[in-house]
């Protein structure tokens, strides 16, 4: 077994063991922290499909996170006020059921990703970065001006949504649900990497001309990757909203998009568990450095600068050595 595989197993074991330990020793805040880390991991795993395999540096992935969050917020808001979402041409009621909310979050974030992808994938390189950033800002301002759903103040959902057979109000049960979804996304990602689509997408990043020469269209490969990527990040958004029982325009903020990329890079680019390692590290630093200094972002910025300038390969690169290169 490679050192990277051992590292992945250790991370996974830690994600299972730590919250169980916290549950037994009655430390619900630790579980909440771990849930936050797992959900942010899921968002970054989504981004990693576009960025890691497809080479699409999207600086607007918070859009999908926010769309997922608002899908949850709007459905649950209508369920808790008993007002139907729409009455014509057919009645749509709100819902407090997680599976339905997840489905809606995934479908809508995929649709938004399709729209943004169709426009922004016409360009590449630095244009793509700036355009995804700009679309992110567009959604942010739209959410602020959307006063029907809280506008700038956001909306609170009073009771966490339910999942059949579970009591999601118990922190460790909700955590387990999130962890299962993260594992499913990681397994999907691993399968995708080896699938014909994943190989073609990888090739489209490296030598688009040859991909074109064998009759594949890089644009369509990238678009599909972008849509899948957005859908997974959207699912994470719905979970994040449920964790906080609150949605607000900050879920669309461009800083969050930047942080998703940061997770992938400090964890290790082109590694399956890179986003997970990065997000866990980020949440841990946020918690511990945040306790030490109000200005912990300075130290985090310096760390990030160090990783980018000198430590290629991120955390997994340091621990597991050079893996399969991504170039």
């Amino acid at each position: 077994m490679s050192r990277e595989a051992v590292f992945n197993l250790v991370v996974l074991a830690g994600l299972v063991a730590l919250p169980l330990y916290a549950h037994l020793s009655d430390a619900p805040f630790t579980i909440t922290l771990a849930t936050r880390a797992v959900i942010l991991s899921l968002a970054a795993v989504g981004l990693n499909i576009a960025l890691g395999i497809g080479g699409l540096v999207s600086l607007g992935h918070a859009v999908f996170f926010g769309v997922g969050g608002y899908a949850m917020g709007i459905l649950a808001f209508h369920a808790q006020t008993y007002a139907p979402l729409m009455e014509w041409p057919f009645v749509v009621e709100g819902t407090k059921s997680m599976p339905v909310i997840w489905l809606v979050a995934v479908v809508f974030s995929a649709l938004v990703a399709l729209g943004i992808g169709l426009l922004s994938l016409r360009t590449s390189g630095v244009y793509f970065i700036m355009i995804t950033l700009a679309f992110g800002q567009m959604f942010y301002y739209f959410a602020i001006s959307w006063s029907a759903y809280g506008g700038e103040d956001g909306m609170s959902i009073y009771v966490r949504n339910g999942f059949p057979g579970l009591n999601t109000l118990v922190p460790v049960q909700f955590y387990g649900l999130c962890l299962v979804l993260l594992c499913a996304a990681l397994a999907f990602n691993a399968v995708l990497l080896r699938s014909p689509f994943g190989l073609a997408l990888n090739a489209a990043r490296q030598v688009p001309d040859r991909v074109r020469a064998v009759g594949l269209d890089p644009f369509r490969l990238r678009l599909l990757a972008f849509v899948i990527s957005g859908a997974i990040t959207g699912l994470a958004g719905a979970l994040f909203a449920d964790l906080n029982r609150f949605v607000s325009p900050t879920m669309f903020s461009w800083q969050l998009s930047g942080e998703f990329i940061v997770f992938i890079i400090i964890g290790g680019t082109a590694r399956l568990f890179g986003p997970v390692a990065g997000a866990v590290l980020f949440v841990a630093l946020e918690h511990f450095l945040g306790g030490v200094s109000d200005y912990w972002h300075i130290w985090f910025g310096l760390l990030l600068l160090g990783v980018v300038l000198f430590g290629r390969g991120g955390l997994i690169g340091v621990i597991a050595g050079r893996g399969r290169g991504h170039d």
Binding site: L51, V57, L59, G125, V126, I129, G258, I261, V262, I265, T269, Y295, W296, H297, I298, F300, G301, L302, L304, L305, V308, L309
Partner: peptide, 19 residues
């Protein structure tokens, strides 16, 4: 590549803002 430039300048924003 642009990804590294984005990240390093993002780190600079954090440092400047908090500083």
């Amino acid at each position: 590549d642009h990804l590294d430039q984005v990240l390093a300048t993002f780190a600079l924003i954090l440092i400047f803002s908090e500083g």
